[in-house]
Structure formats: structure tokens, C-alpha cells
Design a binder for these strands. Sequence first.
DNA 1: TATGAATGAGTTTTCATTCAT
DNA 2: AATGAATGAAAACTCATTCAT
Lengths: 219, 219, 219, 219
Amino acid sequence: MSAPARRDGAHDEPPHDGRSTRAAAMRESRRRAVLDASLRVFSEKGYHATRISDLIEAAGIARGTFYLYFESKNAIFHELLDQLLERIRASVDGVDTRVDAAPLREQLLVIVRRVLATFHQHPELTRLVLRSAPGLDDEVDRKLAAFYGQLHAWLAVSLQNAQALGLMRVLDVDFVSWSVIGAVKQIVELSLERREGADLDRATRALLDLHLDGMLLAR
Amino acid sequence: MSAPARRDGAHDEPPHDGRSTRAAAMRESRRRAVLDASLRVFSEKGYHATRISDLIEAAGIARGTFYLYFESKNAIFHELLDQLLERIRASVDGVDTRVDAAPLREQLLVIVRRVLATFHQHPELTRLVLRSAPGLDDEVDRKLAAFYGQLHAWLAVSLQNAQALGLMRVLDVDFVSWSVIGAVKQIVELSLERREGADLDRATRALLDLHLDGMLLAR
Amino acid sequence: MSAPARRDGAHDEPPHDGRSTRAAAMRESRRRAVLDASLRVFSEKGYHATRISDLIEAAGIARGTFYLYFESKNAIFHELLDQLLERIRASVDGVDTRVDAAPLREQLLVIVRRVLATFHQHPELTRLVLRSAPGLDDEVDRKLAAFYGQLHAWLAVSLQNAQALGLMRVLDVDFVSWSVIGAVKQIVELSLERREGADLDRATRALLDLHLDGMLLAR
Amino acid sequence: MSAPARRDGAHDEPPHDGRSTRAAAMRESRRRAVLDASLRVFSEKGYHATRISDLIEAAGIARGTFYLYFESKNAIFHELLDQLLERIRASVDGVDTRVDAAPLREQLLVIVRRVLATFHQHPELTRLVLRSAPGLDDEVDRKLAAFYGQLHAWLAVSLQNAQALGLMRVLDVDFVSWSVIGAVKQIVELSLERREGADLDRATRALLDLHLDGMLLAR
DNA sequence: TATGAATGAGTTTTCATTCAT
DNA sequence: AATGAATGAAAACTCATTCAT
């Protein structure tokens, strides 16, 4: 998976020479603070129920200040969205997709655990992506589709390889990949509600158990 | 699965004696028409992007008339939501959960096909539930949670039985049930985009194949 | 001078069948009332100092009602502007430009008196055109330029004819026409301040006296 | 015509002793630079469409710096306005109003040419006065009224004298003076659009031709 | 019952001015 | 003196809901 263009957010990056390095750092940290506060609010109330007033109150800034850092409510949401998407991409990117490198079981174990952990470490971002984002607007939907599409493509290729190497049964790789993605999403959503960190391992094992060996006793 | 309380929508059902039976029928049919039109609009534009103007235009009624039949924009959405939820429930309800009645594979085949078909027959309702509804408001989220909760409980019990009867491996039934639900949701969403009706069988088979026998070759 | 396309203002003319003739009339009269009230406010405070609040207060309507009739503050202003421009055009249109029809003096007398009277009858519209409109935005400036351009063209042609017929000295018709227009505008503006209606005749005579016979005694 | 009170603009002139003379000069030159840049912007975009951001960008200074030199957006505009008004006043002031000094024709030739040239040399200031200023606020309108009033008074007195000396026909001096002012304004505005410098003489001659000898052939 | 004009609270965004550094 | 980030009052516009006919 290749990294998408980074989204810098602020309208036009001010040209900062040497002397304003400090200022630029301050600015960036403040931006971060607003993003963090906004994430919390968006994640809790959802996009539409969130007012700019909520955002600036949570960030402790004035109304105009918000627009100093972000173009609009919509823009800050997109920036937030891009972040998690990027984070998940990164967490998957690290996994070795050369199937011969290790048994399928081990490989999937690593990636599933990583993905679940990533979501688990960022419950707000997760809630944002899973609950607030879908259906917001066409642009958001396009981003989500692209994201899941990448994930699916990556998974499908991996499975295809495994299949070619005789490590996997002959299955409908397309549907199976989507199925796995759906299962993971659902488990993530579940852990969001339950907020039990300890279940991460249990969830990982259950997912692998099911998908690798199936429900039936023997064949 | 038990049927939930029916939601009548309109403010207070006027007591209709014999002479107004015809009128009541007219009223009901008109209500239906508005609901149908609204479903189409909601499903296409999403809840927030949909204006009352869109609804009344699609239904061909006047602004005030809308409020004669529905309390509010929110109320009609809830009514629509309840409908699909009820329809899916019904499609699942019919399945015999006594595990000994048939092999697990057959049972799951029937139910998965039914569920997929149900969604497939009502793409608008599906889009509504899958895209517009989540994260809308607490009430909606509660309903969805309850719905999926029921589904999960039903599935978990079935699997538990199968397990007890030695028809199924020992798996974490809780997680596995959620995983299956997630997979199905994802496949449904997929078919929503692709709009290929013929794939229903292929999807069903792929889902069962994966979940019953797993990915690995042999054990 | 040809009449320009009428500007109907309201977003999309609602289709009114026979039964809603009364309603349409009501609507139109209400529109008029809002236009009149707005004209008063605009004329007194100028475009920018006028708030929508001022407009709706003057018209005695609610905020939303305003937007039922007009798209925006800018739109109602344009509609008002078009009105006076049209009215002046009409007042000039009636004048016979065939120079041989009457002596130049008589012709100019009629038209100048008409123009002055038109402005004088509508002091608010006049103030709007003369004070608020110029420099408002490009569209307004274009309209004003077009308007004065028509006026100038009409005048220039008339003078050209007069010249060809030997009724007028050989003068730079282009500049002279603009000069006359400027003089009239200034006199109109003057009468706006003085608010003396009786001076209309005196002003007309002074203008003609000056422009026809010049300042010098004899030649 | 007497010079009006000078408007210094900046809050309170700091008392500058000998040692700060250099600094004061710097300050003054910077002030000038900001004024010049602002004039350009105001003249192009108009008062309301001009943002402080435009001003400081054009002047190459920081936001806060602007307020070190000028009290407000309104204040700098007024200062700019006063300048042209003063400049025109000065260009007229030099003309000898003792009518017996020269024939009316010669006198008017000089002054009209001067006035036109003054405007022509400063198109931005001209656009400001003619397009942006009128109707801006009461204070501006008062200044413009005062300015034109002075011009009118000066012209009226001159004509009165000429009349008394038998150099001019008996005309309504009040209206005639306003008429001349209006004509000149219009011609100036015209040359602003056309931007043809060479026409200055032609315009001057046309104006005099018309006003001195009138349109008619002979009397 | 049906209509659609009227309502006004609520929301985003702008931008002149201030002030800490 | 110079800077530019921060401020918040003010303004336009939207749209779900009401209500007189």
C-alpha cells in the first residue's frame, strides 16, 4: 500500500524563515491541540450534532481563531479522517506480504493483531471513521471506499499468493477478502462498546480460528 | 426473535368508526406513499442532506400535509428504520433454530441466503440502515444496537447448540457470531455498490465456504 | 431605446392555476410592499449600512419571509435598481427623436422636463441610483454604464440629426452628450438635497438656456 | 478658497525633538508609502470590498503596523479623500477670479483645463472620489458636499461678476454653476474609463464650446 | 383534510481591531 | 516600532415547524 499525499490542512502554509522556527512549532502544536479537542467532540457527538461552538469551547479558543487554523468544520473533519486512515494504512504497510516468508497463520496473526491494536489505541478516531464518517458526503465516502479498497486489494493479493503457493484452499478471494474486512470492522466496533482491552487477544484468536479453520469439525 | 413494539408514527390515531373505514384506508395508503417516497430520498441523499422540501416534492404533497401524517423529519426516518429492521427480523425469524433439524451447513445456507436476499430486494432500506442511520442520534444507535444484538444472540444460541451437539468445533461463540454478522454486512454493502443480482449465490457460497471450512487446506 | 428583459426577482415563479389567482395577487402585492419598504431603507442608509434586519423591520415581516421573496440582499437591490433604470428609460422612450418634428428647443424642453420630473417623483429610487449604486459591484456598474450609455447614444443620435438638419452648431456631439447627461445628473442630485419641487421648472429653463444659447452675449 | 484643517491621521503626534528628526522623517515617508498603496487598492476595489489584509499586503507591512500609523480603515480612507479634495481646491485656487482680468473664455479655459488635468494625473484619487466615496457614510457625504459647495460658490461668484460686467448673458447663475460642475464630473468620469490622455484638450474645448456659445446656430 | 406562506431560532463565517511578544 | 496570532461582535442565510385559510 502506498502512502497518499499528506493533507496539511492550513490554508496556505506561511513561509517561515529561520527566526520563526519557534513560532512555527507553536503554531503546529496549537493546531494539534485544536485537532485533538475537535476529535474528541466529533467522536462523541457525531459530525452533524457538533457545532463550531462545541469545537472552540473544547479547544479553549476564540471563534475566529478556529478559522485561522482550519477552513471550515468540514475541512477539520476531513483532516481528522485522513489521519486515522493513514494510521491504519501505516500499521498494515509494515507487514510482509511475501507469503512464502511465513505460514499464513502467523502472518494473519500479526496483521490482525496490529489492526485491532491500532483501532484500540485510538477509540475516538475509530468511532469517527466507523460511525460519523460513512454517508457524510461524497468526498468522505470516496475516501472510505478508497481506503477499504486498498485494504481489500492488499488482502486479496496476499490470499491469492497463498493460494498459488498451496497454502490456502481455493476460495473466492474477492468475497473472502471483503468478508474478513467486515468481520474485523465488526469486532473493532464491538470492542469500542465494551472497552475491554484484555479482549484484544481473545478477539484476534477467535477471528483467526474461525477464518483459518472454519466452524466444522473435520473434513 | 420477538417482534418489537409497533411504531405508529402519526400523533394520535383518530378513532375510526365503521363509516370512516374507507377514509382510514385512504389515509393509510397515502401514508405509505409518503413513506415510500421519503425512503427513496433519504436513501439517496442521506438524512441530513435531505430537506423536508425534498420529501414533499417526492411525495407530491404540500408542506403542511406532511405534518398531518408525521410528527417530524426525525419521526418518519425512525419509522422507515423500524421497517427494515422488522423485515430482516422476520426473514430470520422463520428459520428453524433447532439445530438437530438439519446439518449446520444447510441451516446457515438458508438463513444467509434469506438475509442477503432481503437486503437485496430493498436496496433503499439497506442503504438507509447501513449508511444513513449509524451515528445519527442516540435513539437510532440504540435501535441498531438492539437489532444487531438480537441477531447476535440468535446466532450465538444456534452456534452454542451446534457446539453442544458436536456439530461444530469449539470456538468463541460470542466473537464468532459478531464476526459473521460483520462479514454479512460487508457483503451486503458490497452488493449495494456493485448492484449485481446474480452474485447473490456466489456471495452466499463464498461466505459459507469460508466460515464453515476455513481458509486452510487440511488439519 | 429598447426595453430590457424584465427581472422577476422571485426564485422560481410558482405555477399558479386559476384557483390561486387571488393568492398570486396577494403574493405580488406583498412583494411590492417589501420592495417599497426596502427602497426606503436602502435610500436612506445606503446599501452597505443596510442590514437585512433593517429591511424586515421596515417591511414588518419575519427574517425567513424575506428570503421567501428575494434571494438575497444583493438580489433585492438589483431589482430595485432595475426599476428606476426602466422607469427613466420609459420616460425618455416616449419622446419623438425625429428632429424635424419640432424645433430642438421644444424637444429638449420636453425630455429634460420629463426626466427631471421622473426623478423628482421618486426621490428614494433616485438617491439609490445616484448615491448607493455606483461602485457597488461590477454587475451594478455594468448596468449603470449600460443605462447611461443608452441615454448617451440616444442623445448623440438626436444631436447628430439636429446638426445634419442645420438646427445645431457643429459641436463634438460625443462630449456634448456626456456633458448634458452630467449636468442633468447634477441638477437632479441638487434637487434631491433641496427638496423644492417648485424649482423643477426653473431648473429646466436654466439647463436649456445654458445649453442652447450658451453663456456669452452674442456672437 | 481657504485650506481646510489638516487631518493628521495618526492618533497623537509624538513630540519630536531634534534628535528624532530623522526618525520622524522615516515615519512620515512610511506613512506616505502606506497611503499610496492603500489608495491604489481602494481605488481598484472600492471601500467595502477592500480588506485591511489587502492594504497591508499592498504596503508590505504587518497588520499591527497599520494601526500604528492609522486609526482605522475608515480613517485612512478619509485622509486619502481629503488629499484629492485639497489638491483640486489648490488647482482651482490659483485661478484669478477677478473677471475683468481676462475674457471669460480665457478664464474658463484655464480653470477647466487645470481641473481636468488634475483629475487626469491622479486617476486613482479620482476614482476614489467619484466612485467609492459618494454614499459611504455621512461624514464623507458632508465633505463631498462641502467640496462641491465651495466649487459651486466660487464658480457662481465668478459668473455673477462676469454678468455684472456685461460679459455674460443673464442666466440662473446658481443652476448654471451646478450644471457646469456636473458636466465636468461626467467628462472626468468618462476619461477615467477611456484612459485617453490626448482627449483632454478635445474635452476642454468641447465643454467650453458648449457652455459659452450653446448649441444653437445664431440668435 | 389539505395547503403553503410565514416564522425565527440557530448556525457558519468574516474581518476590523487588539495585544502579547 | 514592528509583528501577526488571537479575538468576538456582527451579519447573512437556512430550514424544520406552525398556523391561518
